[in-house]
Design a protein around this nucleic acid. Structure first.
Lengths: 187, 187
DNA sequence: TGACTACCGGAGCGATGCTCCGTATATTGA
DNA sequence: TCAATATACGGAGCATCGCTCCGGTAGTCA
């Protein structure tokens, strides 16, 4: 990929990503694309050539984060308490979704729309969590009548609610409350 | 108010509300205001004169709904089981928030922004629920370390998540799950 | 009926997302 | 070293948006 790519193209791509990181940090996931191009000292056309879609740009921006979350799920798969493992991971998912304003919405939309440039990454992340959920359910610590999509939707929904609030720990509080609801009742 | 208002003004206001109801039903709470004016066969300036803000327009549109929810809270206050009463009401809140695409977001924003034209209605609705929560907590059916704002945020968060999904009963399922988490544990 | 005032309509501004194409330049082979 | 070619660049341009502002219209009251 990098051998057949012209040097200036690669440079502009990097400039765009850096500019996007800045702009999205400031204005959330629907930051102005024109503004991003301006920050990168690049024409708007160049932005669209590299990232045909806002979602494609976000995908590139969040790649590393998704990888971390994915690896984390794998390592948690080996932890002793399956229930705690799932809860920990969902907490980290919520925290990760709070990186940028609007991220919970972007992820939620991407999961629902297979055409989205962000769909693949998100779906992969989701299935990583799926293995954790399955284990927790088999261990009997999580209700068996609950779906992976539901658990993810719940987590992102709470992360979404938290970003519209002054209380910085709202997401964590809500999530821990909701967790009691997910717990299996063994009597 | 209506005596001192010119007849054509009142007529245009009604036309605008009808048009808004249509447009918002089709495109959600951030429907194009220009489009609403067009549907009402009215100039864009007229729209802004009657409703200086999108939130003001929404407020007028949702007035009746808020009233219903408020009255419902009052009547549920007399029901035998305080815990069920709260749960029922939150379910109706979630259902009401699903009336229009984007409504959960509008309400959540309005609650956070005191300047919003929608704030008063929403805050009033929230406190109606507050009485239900208080009663449920005093009855010992709901955890006492949970805040009114948290319960509302949780409910709207789940309603938000549900509107991005094919499963039509997602909101109800998530809410009932989360409710187990809100329940007080008496042993 | 006339005057007065409340009200109307839409041109216009800055900004957005996105496309399209003439131009410039990095790269490769002679 | 110097074309030739493919590749990438830049931004004008279109439709749309939210919102303002003001010249014109028409209800209303004496």
């Amino acid at each position: 990929m990098s051998q057949t790519t012209r040097a200036d193209a690669r440079k502009n791509r990097d400039l765009l990503l850096a500019a996007a990181r800045e702009a999205v940090a400031e204005h959330g996931t629907d930051a102005s694309l024109r503004d991003i191009a301006r920050r990168a000292s690049v024409g708007i056309g160049t932005l669209y050539r590299h990232f045909p879609t806002r979602e494609a740009l976000l995908e590139a921006l969040l790649n590393a984060n998704f990888d971390v979350l994915h690896a984390r799920a794998d390592s948690l798969l080996a932890s002793p308490d399956p229930g705690d493992a799932l809860m920990t991971w969902l907490g980290e998912l919520a925290a990760g979704a709070a990186t940028y304003q609007g991220l919970p919405e972007s992820i939620m939309n991407a999961l629902a729309d297979e055409e989205s440039g962000l769909h693949a990454s998100c779906a992969q992340m989701r299935s990583a969590g799926g293995r954790l959920l399955e284990r927790a359910q088999q261990a009997g610590s999580i209700r068996s009548d609950v779906t992976l999509s539901e658990v993810i939707a719940l987590t992102l929904g709470l992360a979404w609610a938290a970003e519209r609030s002054e209380a910085s720990d709202l997401a964590a509080r809500l999530l821990s409350t909701a967790m009691y609801g997910l717990a299996a009742r063994d009597h």
